[in-house]
């Protein structure tokens, strides 16, 4: 890469890191609110740990696929980049479907977010993560479309690297959700 391209790449990646950190604090706020409002609420009737574990496996597989796609991206191997990003997309879409299905099933059992502050916090935390995922799925398509027509350019490497970082950040947030919401809530009662 020429020095100008390298500079732009470095700035974009660093800026994405900072954006990720700030989004982490955004989620951190929601986590704090959840932890505070969860106290004394029975979580067993809401969700099952097995289901959440399944979701986790799918999302982590998606993350692995995105990581491989990122490696091929830097080698400018268009075919494998597309294949692995496609795999990441399918797994991500599957995860999003499971995540929202879970919320709908809870709501259909008449635990809706307007019944208590705890339910509000649960729906908001999971829903916010889900919306991030859905937006990323959309954005992945936008960024991958040109790769069907041209070779991988420097600008594609930059954008898809930033995207991949953000995708993996969302997986890390999910790990926190799995720990704080599902694992720590496994006894049914928090704290």
């Amino acid at each position: 890469m020429s020095s100008g391209v390298q500079d732009t790449y470095d700035r974009a990646v660093f800026g994405t890191w900072l954006y990720i950190l700030s989004d982490f604090l955004f989620f951190g706020t929601l986590f704090a609110v959840y932890a505070f409002l969860q106290k004394g609420n029975d979580t067993n009737k809401l969700f099952s740990l097995k289901y959440a574990f399944g979701e986790t496996l799918i999302l982590l597989s998606s993350s692995t696929a995105a990581g491989l796609a990122g490696a091929y991206l830097h080698r400018k191997d268009r075919r494998n980049t597309l294949i692995y990003f496609f795999l990441a997309w399918i797994l991500g879409a599957g995860f999003a479907a499971l995540e929202f299905l879970n919320l709908f099933s809870i709501a259909s059992r008449n635990y809706t977010w307007d019944q208590s502050a705890f339910l509000s916090a649960y729906f908001t935390l999971i829903g916010t993560h889900g919306l991030h995922i859905v937006f990323c799925l959309f954005w992945m398509i936008v960024l991958l479309l040109p790769l069907f027509f041209t070779q991988i350019r420097d600008v594609d490497v930059r954008r898809l690297t930033c995207f991949r970082m953000f995708w993996q950040f969302l997986n890390i947030v999910w790990i926190f959700i799995f720990t704080i919401v599902y694992l720590m809530g496994v006894d049914g009662y928090y704290g």
Binding site: L21, S22, D23, F24, L25, F26, G28, T29, L30, V33, L37, W113, D114, Q115, S116, A117, L119, S120, A121, F123, T124, T128
Partner: peptide, 23 residues
């Protein structure tokens, strides 16, 4: 570091006002 907290907090106020969450 500080503005994401405001964004999240305003988000909670917004859902409390429009979607009847109960934060």
């Amino acid at each position: 570091v500080a503005f994401p907290i405001l964004t999240a907090n305003l988000g909670l106020l917004f859902t409390d006002r429009l979607f009847s969450t109960r934060f």
